[in-house]
C-alpha cells in the first residue's frame, strides 16, 4: 500500500490511544531515571494533537505533519516536546506536495524527521536516548528498501529494530538528558524516550500494511 493523508491521520490518532494506554508505563520508566513525566507529556501532547486535527483538519500530508509539530511544540514541554516537535516539523519538509507516500517516501519522511532530533538534541548513538531506537530502525528500514521489500516489510523490520534498540538501552549509562545526572545509576533501566519511539513505529507497522 501507499500511505494517504487519511492513513497518516489514522496513525497519529491511534498514537493518542497508544500514549494514553502507556501513560503509566512510560512515566514509570521515567521515574526510574528521570522525573516521572514522560508518559504524562506524551499523553498530553497527542491528546492535544488529536483535538487539533479534528477541529482544524489539514488537507494534505505535509500540513498534517506540520500541525502535529506545532501542537507538540506548544503542549509537551520537557525534552520530548522540542525533540518530537522538531521531528514532525522536519518530516513535513520531506513530503511537501505529495498526495501518497510509497515505502521510500515513508522512510525518507522518518529519516528527515530524525535529522531534526539530532540537530536539536545533539545526542549520539549509545547516549541512552530515543536516538538509540531511531538509529537501528532507520538502518533496518533502509536495508529492507534496498532489497525491494514492501512497505509492510520495511515498517516491520524498522519496528523490530527499534524494539531491539530500545531494549539495548537497558545496560547503557545515560550521557544526555536528565538521566545522565545519575551516572552509573542510570544503568539497568530502559530509556523512556526510546520506548515512546518504539511504540510510534510499531503502530505505523501495524496500521500501514
Amino acid at each position: 500500500m501507499a500511505v494517504s493523508r487519511d492513513n497518516l491521520v489514522a496513525w497519529i490518532e491511534a498514537l493518542q490511544q497508544v500514549y494514553n494506554e502507556n501513560k503509566e508505563y512510560l512515566t514509570k520508566l521515567d521515574a526510574a531515571i528521570g522525573d516521572a513525566d514522560h508518559g504524562i507529556n506524551m499523553n498530553r501532547g497527542f491528546t492535544a494533537v488529536k483535538t487539533e486535527l479534528e477541529s482544524n483538519p489539514p488537507d494534505n500530508i505535509a500540513s498534517v505533519l506540520k500541525s502535529v509539530a506545532m501542537t507538540l511544540i506548544k503542549k509537551v514541554g520537557g525534552a520530548s516536546g522540542p525533540l518530537y516537535g522538531t521531528f514532525f516539523l522536519r518530516a513535513s519538509t520531506a513530503v511537501t506536495g505529495k498526495e501518497e507516500l510509497d515505502a521510500a517516501a515513508v522512510v525518507s519522511m522518518f529519516e528527515t524527521g530524525f535529522s531534526g532530533i539530532i540537530q536539536r538534541g545533539k545526542a549520539e548513538v549509545g547516549d541512552k536516548t530515543m536516538v538509540d531506537a531511531w538509529t537501528p530502525a532507520l538502518a533496518a528500514m533502509n536495508e529492507a528498501l534496498d532489497s525491494d521489500a514492501s512497505l509492510k516489510e520495511v515498517l516491520e523490520k524498522g519496528a523490530a529494530a527499534a524494539e531491539q534498540g530500545m531494549k539495548d538501552t537497558i545496560p547503557l549509562q545515560a550521557k544526555k538528558g536528565r538521566a545522565s545526572y545519575l551516572g552509573e545509576r542510570s544503568k539497568g533501566h530502559q530509556d523512556p524516550g526510546a520506548t515512546s519511539t518504539c511504540l510510534m513505529l510499531q503502530k505505523a507497522a501495524e496500521l500501514w500494511s
Binding site: 522525573d35 516521572a36 513525566d37 507529556n41 511544540i73 506548544k74 503542549k75 514541554g77 520537557g78 522540542p82
Partner: peptide, 11 residues
C-alpha cells in the same frame, strides 16, 4: 510556568 516539573513551551 510549565506543568509540574516539566519545562514550559516555546510559545
Amino acid at each position: 510556568p510549565g506543568d509540574v516539573f516539566t519545562s514550559p513551551t516555546p510559545d
